[in-house]
Deep mutational scan, measured.
Amino acid sequence: QWKVGDKCSAIWSEDGCIYPATIASIDFKRETCVVVYTGYGNREEQNLSDLLSPICE
């Protein structure tokens, strides 16, 4: 189960590419979260089910 502060990978809606991110907040009722893309600072809402394991850098 994901928690705030977890590192993950998420698909950015603008280009469909996968980027490393950190979970900033979680809404368990809606099963969504807000991620912050590492190195970019962009925030975006994602479905918890769409999150991927962190990418090894």
Rank of each mutant, 00 (worst) to 15 (best):
V35R: 00
W12E: 05
D6H: 00
S49V: 11
C8E: 00
S25Y: 09
G41Y: 03
F28P: 12
S25T: 10
S53A: 14
T32G: 04
N47Q: 08
A10N: 01
D27W: 08
C17W: 01
Q46S: 02
I11E: 04
I23H: 00
A21Q: 07
N47T: 05
S53F: 10
S13R: 07
S53L: 15
A24E: 15
G16C: 06
G16S: 03
S49T: 09
E31M: 14
T32Q: 02
I55A: 09
F28A: 12
S53R: 13
L51D: 01
Y37D: 05
E44M: 10
Q1T: 01
I23C: 00
K3R: 11
Y19E: 04
F28W: 15
I55C: 13
I55V: 12
V35N: 02
C33I: 08
C17K: 15
R43P: 08
S25P: 04
E31N: 13
Y40I: 12
W2D: 15
S9P: 03
S9F: 15
L51M: 06
I26M: 01
E31G: 15
F28S: 11
G39M: 11
T22I: 14
I18D: 04
G16F: 08
I26G: 02
S53M: 13
E44A: 02
I23Q: 03
L48I: 06
P20N: 14
E14T: 07
A10F: 06
V34M: 08
E31K: 14
E57R: 07
V36F: 05
D6L: 08
G41H: 08
W12I: 08
P54D: 09
C33F: 05
K29P: 06
E45W: 07
A10L: 09
A10H: 03
D27N: 02
G5F: 02
D6A: 00
C33W: 10
S49Y: 08
T22P: 02
L48H: 03
C56N: 13
I55S: 09
L48K: 02
G41Q: 05
Y37P: 04
E31D: 11
Y19A: 01
W2E: 15
I23R: 01
Q46Y: 02
S49N: 09
E31R: 13
E14L: 13
D15W: 08
F28M: 12
N47K: 14
I26W: 00
E57W: 13
L51G: 03
K7Q: 12
Q46C: 05
F28I: 12
I18T: 02
V34W: 10
R43G: 07
E44L: 06
K7E: 13
E57G: 13
S49D: 04
V4E: 14
A24N: 05
S25R: 02
Y19R: 02
Y37T: 05
K3H: 13
K3F: 13
Q46H: 13
L52W: 04
Q46M: 08
S13Q: 02
I11P: 01
E44G: 05
T38I: 13
T38A: 11
S9V: 08
S49W: 09
C17Q: 15
F28N: 10
L52D: 01
R43H: 11
N42I: 15
I23D: 06
Q1A: 10
R30L: 10
C8M: 00
W12Y: 10
I23A: 03
T38S: 08
G5N: 05
I11D: 04
P20D: 12
S25C: 08
R30D: 11
I26Y: 00
E57F: 12
I11V: 11
S9I: 10
Y40N: 15
E31P: 03
K7M: 12
E45K: 04
E14N: 07
V34S: 05
Q1D: 14
D50C: 07
K3I: 13
C8F: 01
E44F: 08
Y19I: 04
D27M: 05
P54M: 10
E44H: 02
C33N: 00
A10Q: 06
I23M: 00
V35T: 04
F28Y: 14
E44I: 02
Q1E: 12
Q46N: 05
P54G: 09
C56M: 14
V34C: 03
A24R: 05
I18N: 01
Q46P: 06
Y40K: 12
S53P: 15
S9E: 11
C56F: 14
C56S: 14
K3M: 11
S49E: 09
S9G: 11
Y19D: 04
W12T: 02
E44N: 05
D15L: 08
A24M: 13
D50K: 05
E14R: 15
V35I: 12
G39S: 04
K29A: 13
W12K: 01
V4Q: 09
K29I: 13
D15S: 02
G39N: 08
T32L: 06
P54I: 10
A21Y: 01
L52G: 01
D27R: 01
L51T: 01
T22V: 14
G39V: 09
D50G: 06
E45I: 11
